[in-house]
Design a protein around this nucleic acid. Structure first.
Length: 475
DNA sequence: ATGTCC
């Protein structure tokens, strides 16, 4: 990125000063190396978001930001409904409520090494992965609506998961305000047989070891012990969220024009929060959040079934489940007064600090676990939200972020070779798609360690532990 | 991300 037009605030903060019809500044969190590697498009998109009605404080981009549809991936923006604020399908993303959950196992790396090949095969057999994969679960009309309202709580009622999981999930596992009537028949049809499936792209189920602890006290409170093993799942709302995103992106374009909103570009289609379509999107998006929460709960249950066969004496309690593609109503102090804002996080993880009322009692002392997925075969991180003064409406990065397009990655690597190279380093990949593996090659991503180190220095979240993969089931 | 183009 050309930094000559940016104002450098400090080591990790760059400002796009408001010009033209920008209503607020743009803020990019990055160090010198990350901002230089970042596409100019990130600054352009961050500035464009700052032109939307009702935006408050600033349009933010996280250290892993890259070019997205309309809003940058790694973008955070909050809108005030009483100042003409908008909601945007492109500000949430196609994979509504895509997120990460981690389960603790209490097992050691040695326990896994002893059964690694068989465990990898068993997980690959149990976890449906890849485009169009099936779990065998099929929902009728009533069950679909119950799932869209009930989220992970619904999944637990059906026997997929444990009641004690719920307090470790955003919104206690059930997003309020979901309205199945706002979800199209087409979206429901696509999802009918997709519950309990992982999907493709960068979605995965990994067995990971705690490799390094940065913050011993918080790690202990989270149950993270060096040399012990976690199960981490990264996926979202599958076809349902994608269909909702597609339909509302299409329908918000004329709606924006009708509301007299001048869009910097078509991809920023949005609607006033106080408008029928804005409200319909929120009802549908919240239903998609429940779909993703239920999906991750079911996948967690499948993983537990596999572990139960290998290690029957071990339970797998949930550490946390957090999304990085949402729009949430939150109270933040802006301009000296608390305001109810619609916070869009697209490829950005919510990072609430200690004592936040949304957190369960068991986590209030430490703050919210911020689960950051790395690229396949490299590493992942657990961070924790900051106390008062969390930047970007208490948000952090969501992953490594691509450094190379899928197309470029395909030209550079073969899936088989990537799998063999990782196997030599003790990391077993199981995927139905050699092409998918090539697209997700570790070299196609930025260095997640650098991204989280910058996130910490920028005051977005604090590092707790680094995780390294042992097994990865991919779509 | 995505029944990777109805």
């Amino acid at each position: 990125m050309d930094t000559s037009k940016l104002t450098r605030i400090d080591d990790t903060t760059w400002q796009i000063d408001p010009t033209g019809d920008m209503r607020v500044p743009g803020i990019i969190f990055a160090d010198e190396a990350l901002i230089e590697a970042m596409d100019d498009k990130v600054a352009e998109q961050t500035a464009n978001v700052a032109r939307l009605p009702g935006i408050v404080q600033a349009s933010y981009a996280m250290p892993d930001a890259h070019w997205g549809y309309g809003f940058p991936i790694g973008g955070v923006a909050a809108f005030d409904p009483d100042e003409g604020g908008v909601v945007s399908a492109g500000g949430v993303g196609f994979d509504v409520s895509c997120g990460v959950r981690s389960l603790l196992t209490g097992l050691t790396v040695a326990d896994i090494r002893a059964v690694q090949e068989r465990l990898a095969d068993a997980l690959a057999a149990q976890i449906p992965a890849g485009v169009g994969s099936r779990s065998g679960i099929s929902l009728n009309r009533q069950e679909m609506d119950a799932m869209l309202v009930g989220g992970a709580a619904w999944a637990v009622e059906q026997g997929w998961g444990e009641p004690e999981d719920l307090e470790r999930i955003e919104e206690m596992g059930r997003m309020a305000g979901a309205d199945p009537d706002c979800v199209s028949e087409q979206a429901k049809k696509r999802q009918r047989r997709e519950m309990g499936t992982l999907g493709s792209g960068n979605h995965y189920l990994e067995i990971q070891a705690v490799e390094k602890v940065f913050d011993a006290e918080t790690a202990a409170a989270f149950g993270l012990v060096e040399g012990e093993v976690l199960v981490t799942i990264h996926c979202g709302s599958r076809g349902l969220g994608h269909q909702i995103g597609t339909e509302f992106l299409r329908d918000m374009l004329p709606a924006a024009a009708e509301a007299g909103i001048r869009l910097p570009e078509r991809e920023l289609a949005c609607a006033p929060i106080h408008s029928p379509i804005g409200q319909r999107y929120l009802g549908a998006m919240r239903a998609a959040i429940n779909c993703a929460l239920a999906n991750r709960e079911i996948l967690g249950h499948f993983a537990r079934e596999v572990f139960d066969r290998f290690f029957p004496e071990h339970r797998l309690p949930l550490l946390y489940d957090v999304s990085h593609n949402t729009c949430k109503v939150e109270t933040h102090t802006v301009g000296g007064r608390p305001r109810q804002l619609y916070v869009h996080r697209k490829g950005a993880t919510r990072a609430f600090g200690p004592a936040h009322s949304e957190l369960p009692e068991a986590l209030r002392g430490e703050g919210q676990p911020v689960l950051i997925g790395g690229s396949m075969g490299t590493g992942s991180h657990v961070l924790v939200g900051m106390g008062t003064g969390g930047k970007g409406f208490y948000s952090a990065c969501h992953g490594a972020g691509r450094a190379m397009s899928r197309h470029a990655a395909l030209k550079r690597w073969h899936g088989r070779q990537v799998v063999d190279d990782l196997a030599e380093r003790g990391i077993l990949i199981r995927s139905p798609s050699a092409r998918g593996v090539a697209e997700e090659a570790p070299g196609a991503y930025k260095d997640v360690d650098q991204v989280v180190e910058v996130a910490e220095r920028a005051g977005l979240a604090r590092r707790v532990a680094r995780l390294t993969p042992l097994i990865c089931v991919k779509g």
